[in-house]
Amino acid sequence: MLTGLDLEVRPGRSVALVGASGVGKTTTLLTLAGLLPPVGGTLTLDGRVPATLPSAQVAAAVVVTTEDAHVFGTTVLENLRVARGDVTPAEARDALDGVGLGPWLDLLPDGLDTLLGPDARTVSGGERRRLLLARALLAPAPLLLVDEPAEHLDAPAADALLRLLLSDARARGRGIVVVTHRLSALDAADEVVLLVDGRVAARGSHARLLATVEDYREAHDRERAALDETSVEPG
């Protein structure tokens, strides 16, 4: 159980939750989405307890993308229209381009009208994750919660995608909470919350945590070193 977390998410603000596996990041995200009841403390949405609100009202305010979010056995376009029924083909392509799926879309036999297998069994893990992110970005909800968007992606693509999510939220005036194990791109977040052993170990800007939290700085430096290695051209 996570303790000591006091968090306000509002339109235009971006927060990243980081920490080792099992510290409660995903559970926190699902609780913020109203999908799990809080085991302590209080959770409110516009000053009201989500459990007392109609589910449609909560869904209109908060969109959550988790690792096991469903991809339907229909076309690419209809999968994106789950977020908003009037998504146009041009909007769909822009969203897919934004998450790095433009080349993938170009190779599909029928483009946006290509049928996907049940739960996206015909696409890779990274493609599935980015398709779900494109769907979330098309949703009109003012608050976006995203669980591990960088999974199944190489380091450069993962950091680019994180930066896209954080910058898109700021540009649209949307609040976002991102659960991630990647640290390199978090200078784009307004606040980083480091969770350790079920508690808040540190919080603040990415720069502040780099300057004051040794474990955070060492993890970041390892990421940067690995990223630099992948960027070296062979001789």
Rank of each mutant, 00 (worst) to 15 (best):
D110W: 12
V99M: 06
G102C: 02
D94G: 14
P118N: 13
L96F: 07
L116V: 00
D113Y: 12
E91S: 06
A95N: 02
G111H: 07
P118C: 09
A90F: 04
P103S: 11
A92D: 04
P103V: 08
G100W: 04
L116K: 00
P109T: 08
V87S: 03
L105Q: 02
D86V: 06
D106E: 13
L116F: 00
L105M: 04
L105S: 05
L112R: 11
W104F: 07
L107P: 10
D106T: 12
P89T: 14
L101K: 12
P103Q: 00
G117T: 05
L116P: 01
D110I: 08
A92F: 01
V87Y: 07
A92E: 01
T88A: 03
G100R: 06
D94H: 15
L116D: 01
D94T: 15
G102K: 09
W104L: 02
G111V: 00
V87E: 01
W104E: 10
G100Q: 07
P109W: 08
D86W: 13
V87M: 14
G102Y: 09
P109V: 02
T114D: 03
D86E: 13
L96T: 14
V99Q: 09
T88M: 06
R93A: 14
W104C: 08
D97R: 14
G111E: 03
P109A: 04
V99A: 05
A92L: 10
V99I: 04
D106A: 15
T114Q: 14
A92R: 03
A90Q: 10
P118D: 13
D86P: 06
L105W: 00
G98S: 05
D113E: 11
L112A: 10
L108N: 08
P109Q: 08
G102T: 10
L96A: 09
L112N: 00
G98T: 13
L96V: 06
R93P: 10
G98W: 10
P89G: 04
D113V: 05
A90E: 15
V87G: 03
E91W: 09
T114K: 09
V87N: 13
T88K: 12
L107M: 14
A95G: 07
L108W: 10
D106F: 02
D106L: 04
V87W: 10
G111Y: 00
G100N: 12
T88Y: 11
T114A: 05
P118I: 05
L108K: 06
P109C: 05
W104P: 02
L101Y: 01
D113T: 13
R93T: 06
A90T: 13
L101A: 11
L96G: 01
W104H: 05
A90S: 08
V87P: 13
T88P: 12
V87L: 06
P118T: 03
G117I: 01
V99E: 03
P109G: 06
E91H: 09
R93S: 09
P89H: 08
E91K: 15
D97I: 08
L105C: 06
L101V: 07
D94K: 15
P103C: 07
P103K: 04
E91N: 12
G98L: 09
L116G: 01
A95S: 09
L101C: 09
A92W: 00
G100C: 00
L96Q: 00
L112Y: 05
L96D: 08
G98K: 14
D106I: 01
V87F: 07
G117F: 02
R93G: 14
D86M: 07
L105E: 00
V87D: 11
L112T: 00
G117C: 05
